[in-house]
């Protein structure tokens, strides 16, 4: 960057075309990012800005008319009981996912990486990863059948264990629907998280563990005082990915319950879809979109702030 500014006067003193040639040259340097900026700008950033505009209107898809709505759609957000329910479900999703896919996966990765044989390590990592490689449509449909009363594996296993009394209409009962979906999501996601933690753990210098062993530290002690602090960045990254992911969840719920019964398993994403694409209320759907944006943004900023604070202390 510096070479251009070496003699700013020289360019202007020479022929007039030189300045514009310099400008062109400067722009030419941007060719590396031009495609990415155009793509991300048009299809990632612009729709989000446009979403705010749509959220201030009423749209009628049948007449093709758009009328200004002011903050009406946002007022409805505050009165819509399903919004509260959906937020709660998203929150439950986030908390449970952090427990299993951050802390659970961390422990699992520590156990796997503690195994002596490299082949065993590779084997378990790969086995646990398999569900993450499969589409949520497939796993959602699969668990939809697993949870089916009468034909499902779930009931079969419970009966086999003598726990037949515990059997429920997992997806049809408003009290259990969302948790049944969350459980599927943990089944699918923990292996991916464990793999990422494995990657981070492999980066920790072996000398640290050697030194700890010399001092007589046991396995648990080593995990607590070496592995955990040394993977703190990964843990932070995983928390943010998991939490923002939990507030954007859509597929699992859509495939397994569509938000039912009686909206009991509705999350923000599916409620947006329901309002915009089934009830034709694009303006209100856009307002729900703004809410999702605000929540995920807040999570992201909180994480950045935590990171910054940690560096200071």
């Amino acid at each position: 960057m510096t070479d251009i500014h070496q003699d700013p006067g020289a360019a202007t003193r020479q022929e007039p075309g030189a300045t514009s040639r310099r400008v062109i040259q400067e722009f030419w340097r941007l060719r590396w990012v031009a495609v990415a900026v155009a793509l991300v700008g048009s299809f990632v950033y612009w729709p989000i800005i446009d979403n705010f505009r749509v959220s201030l209107t009423h749209q009628d898809i049948f007449t093709g008319e758009t009328s200004p709505a002011g903050l009406e759609n946002y007022r409805r957000l505050t009165e819509d009981p399903v919004i509260g329910l959906a937020l709660w479900n998203n929150l439950a999703y986030a908390v449970i996912s952090v427990l299993f896919q951050v802390f659970g996966a961390f422990l699992l990765a520590a156990i796997i990486e503690g195994l002596g044989s490299p082949r065993a390590r590779a084997f378990w990592r790969a086995v646990y990863f398999i569900p993450s490689a499969i589409s949520t449509t497939v796993t959602g449909l699969l668990f939809y059948f697993i949870y089916q009363p009468g034909m499902g594996l779930m009931d079969g296993v419970l009966q086999g264990l003598g726990l037949g009394a515990w059997s429920r209409v997992w997806l049809g009962d408003p009290d259990t629907a969302i948790y049944a979906i969350i459980a599927m999501s943990q089944w699918q996601g923990f292996g991916y998280a464990a793999l990422l933690f494995s990657v981070a753990i492999q980066k920790i210098p072996a000398e640290l563990y050697d030194a700890a062993r010399m001092d007589g530290a046991g396995a648990l002690r080593q995990i607590w005082s070496i592995t955990l602090p040394m993977t703190r960045e990964m843990t932070g990254l995983m928390v943010i990915i998991t939490v923002t992911g939990a507030f954007q969840v859509f597929n699992e719920v859509m495939v397994m319950t569509g938000g039912g019964p009686n909206n009991a398993s509705q999350v923000l994403g599916t409620w947006l879809y329901e309002q915009g694409f089934n009830q034709n209320d694009m303006g209100y759907a856009a307002a729900i979109g703004s809410l999702i944006f605000a929540v995920t943004m807040a999570c992201g900023l909180a994480q950045l702030w935590l990171n910054a604070r940690r560096r200071v202390t």
Binding site: F43, V44, W46, P47, I48, D50, N51, V54, T244, F247, Q248, F250, L268, G269, L272, Y273, G276, M282, A285, A286, G289, S290, I292, F293, T296
Partner: peptide
Amino acid sequence: SPTVALVP
């Protein structure tokens, strides 16, 4: 989030 961009 892709969900937010959906409507536009």
